[in-house]
Amino acid sequence: MILDWFYEEGPRGPENWKNICAIFHKAENESLQSPINLKEEEVTAEMDGNLLAFDYHATNFRSSFFNHTVHLNPVAGEKINHVVFNHKRYTLEDIHFHLPSEHLINSQQFPLEMHLVHRSAKNELLVIGVVAEPTQVPLNKKLAKIDNIALNPRNAARGFVVPILLNQLLPEKRTFFNYSGSLTTPPTEGPVEWLVFKMPVYMRQGLLKAFEEQIGKTNRPVQERKGRPIYLADK
């Protein structure tokens, strides 16, 4: 059964997702929810940045459009990409986008947030959040190709395959917040290990405009922290 949910206010908007069905209700009530406002002044403790390591490669991704946004998934047979966090290995399985950013960084919202979704061998989820700001020109030709083909919402549903250098999607300065939360789309179940970079990356202004015009608002509002610890790692 397909259950429609939306980002606009109303009976199927974010404030009412938990009322759509029992599965959504259970997920929201039994998990600490995401996204949240990540404030340096509220950090519980510092974390060793060396607990996070990337094993990313140039990889072909296929674009698609579902759950109101653009998704990129590794093409079958490609070399597997991993991150290791706190001595546990997670495999990258999906990249998708929210507009504007779902997490706030020191109470600031950004035009876009990219989520890199990873899963461990024990089915545990780790999501890396990368916020983005606009730039007038692409940073290099490879990123321009990604912008123009794979990420443009008009093209995504056509299933383009495009090579991506994953490390180029991450900020140069990799200070990150860490906390435990949930998925940000229904069912918003947890736990999800969240790593959110403090510094933004830069995305072409034209691509952000295409997202705004063709997708519109795709962010869940911030949720209550409810006393959970937040860690900050300077990497």
Rank of each mutant, 00 (worst) to 15 (best):
F211E: 05
G216M: 06
Y179W: 05
R174N: 13
R174M: 06
V192R: 07
G206S: 12
W194T: 10
E189M: 12
L169I: 13
A157T: 10
K198V: 14
E213W: 05
E213I: 06
M203F: 13
K198I: 11
V196E: 01
R220W: 07
F160W: 15
A157M: 12
K173Y: 13
L207E: 06
G159T: 02
E193M: 12
P163C: 08
A156P: 06
M203R: 06
P221V: 07
L170N: 01
P200F: 02
Y202L: 04
N167H: 13
P191Q: 13
A156E: 00
E212D: 13
S180Y: 10
I164W: 09
F197G: 09
K198M: 00
Q223V: 03
P171I: 04
L208S: 02
E224I: 00
I164H: 12
L170G: 01
P171T: 02
V162E: 14
Q168F: 05
Q214C: 04
T188K: 12
V162D: 11
E213S: 15
L170A: 05
E193D: 12
L166V: 07
R220S: 00
E172R: 09
A210F: 11
V162T: 15
I215N: 11
A157W: 05
R220T: 09
W194L: 02
G190C: 03
T175I: 01
V201G: 00
R174T: 15
E193Q: 13
T184F: 14
K217F: 08
P163K: 14
F177P: 11
P200T: 00
G190H: 08
T184K: 14
I164R: 10
L170T: 02
M199E: 08
G159V: 00
Q205V: 08
A210P: 02
L166M: 14
T185Y: 01
P200E: 06
I164G: 05
V196I: 04
Q214E: 07
V192S: 00
L208Y: 02
V201T: 01
P186S: 14
V196Y: 06
A157N: 11
I215V: 10
G181F: 08
K198A: 01
G181Y: 05
P187R: 02
K217W: 15
G190L: 08
E172A: 07
K217G: 08
E189Y: 15
S180A: 05
F160G: 09
L207M: 06
P163Q: 11
E224Y: 00
T218Q: 11
Q223K: 00
L195W: 04
E193C: 08
K217S: 15
G159A: 04
L195D: 10
Y202A: 06
G181L: 02
S182F: 10
T188E: 04
W194A: 01
L183Q: 04
T185H: 03
E212L: 13
T175E: 03
F197M: 05
P186Q: 15
G216C: 09
G159E: 05
M203L: 15
N178K: 14
G206W: 05
T188W: 09
L169R: 01
E193V: 03
N178H: 11
F177Y: 09
R174E: 07
V161M: 08
Y179K: 10
L195G: 11
V196D: 09
